[in-house]
C-alpha cells in the first residue's frame, strides 16, 4: 500500500517540523470538519483539530506505516473529538445566528442557485433541525455519520479508523440516519419540497 504522504511523513519522523507543517496544511480542514461533525462547536472543533495534530506529531515515532497516514490521522482526530464530547456537559445546540462572534448567514450551509425568502427560511430551519437531531446522537454515532456522509469512507475504513467491527459501523450508521430522518416525521413537508426533487 503506497502512502502519498510517505515522503513527508518520513521527514517529519526525523524531526523535520516543516514537513509536518505541510501535512497540517494539507489535512487541517479535514480534521476540523471531522471534529465539527462530532462536537458541533467551532471553538471546540478548532481546539480538537489542533490537539489532534499535536498528538500526531508527538506520536509520529510510533507510526509504523501499516496504514496510510491519513487513516491514522482520522483515528487520532476521532478519538480526540469523542473524548472531548464525553468529557463535556451537554451543550445547547450551536446557535449560529445569535452569537456576534459566530456571525454567518444561516443559509450559507446549503447551496441553492436562486434562493427565495421562503427557501432561505426553510434552509435555516432545516439546519437547526439537523443540529438538534445530531445533538441527540452519541459522539460515536456522530463520528460514524461524519466519516460516512461527509468523508465518504467505506464501512471497512470506518471500522479501521474507529477500531470497531464493520457490523457495528453498519448498525450505528443505520441508527444515525434514522434519527436524522425522524426529524422529518413531525415537520412541515413543504420545507423539503423546496430542497428535494422528490415530492410526496
Amino acid at each position: 500500500m503506497r502512502d502519498p504522504d510517505g515522503s513527508l511523513v518520513s521527514r517529519a519522523k526525523k524531526g523535520d517540523k516543516d514537513a509536518f507543517g505541510k501535512l497540517v496544511k494539507q489535512y487541517y480542514e479535514m480534521v476540523y470538519g471531522l471534529a465539527l461533525g462530532v462536537c458541533r462547536e467551532r471553538e471546540a472543533a478548532r481546539d480538537i483539530a489542533q490537539e489532534a495534530f499535536f498528538k500526531a506529531f508527538r506520536q509520529l515515532e510510533h507510526f509504523e506505516g501499516r496504514s496510510k497516514f491519513k487513516t491514522w490521522l482520522y483515528r487520532i482526530a476521532m478519538n480526540t473529538a469523542i473524548d472531548f464530547v464525553r468529557r463535556k456537559k451537554p451543550v445547547v445546540s450551536m446557535d449560529q445566528g445569535k452569537d456576534e462572534y459566530d456571525e454567518i448567514p444561516l443559509e450559507a450551509g446549503i447551496a441553492d442557485e436562486n434562493p427565495n425568502p421562503r427557501d432561505l427560511a426553510s434552509q435555516s430551519e432545516l439546519r437547526e433541525r439537523i443540529d438538534r437531531a445530531i445533538e441527540k446522537l452519541s459522539p460515536e454515532h456522530r463520528a460514524i455519520l461524519v466519516l460516512r456522509e461527509w468523508q465518504q469512507l467505506s464501512y471497512e475504513d470506518i471500522a479501521e479508523t474507529l477500531e470497531i467491527e464493520s457490523g457495528t459501523v453498519m448498525s450505528r450508521l443505520f441508527y444515525a440516519r434514522k434519527k436524522l430522518g425522524e426529524i422529518l416525521r413531525h415537520e412541515d413537508e413543504g420545507i423539503f419540497g423546496a430542497l428535494s426533487d422528490e415530492r410526496i
Partner: peptide
C-alpha cells in the same frame, strides 16, 4: 417515506460541514 427524505437531510448535513470548513 422516511428514506425519501433522508437524501435532502444528508445533503444539507454535508453542505453544512463544507460551508464551515471553507470559512
Amino acid at each position: 417515506r422516511e428514506y425519501k427524505f433522508e437524501k435532502p437531510v444528508l445533503k444539507a448535513y454535508r453542505s453544512w460541514i463544507e460551508s464551515e470548513i471553507r470559512r
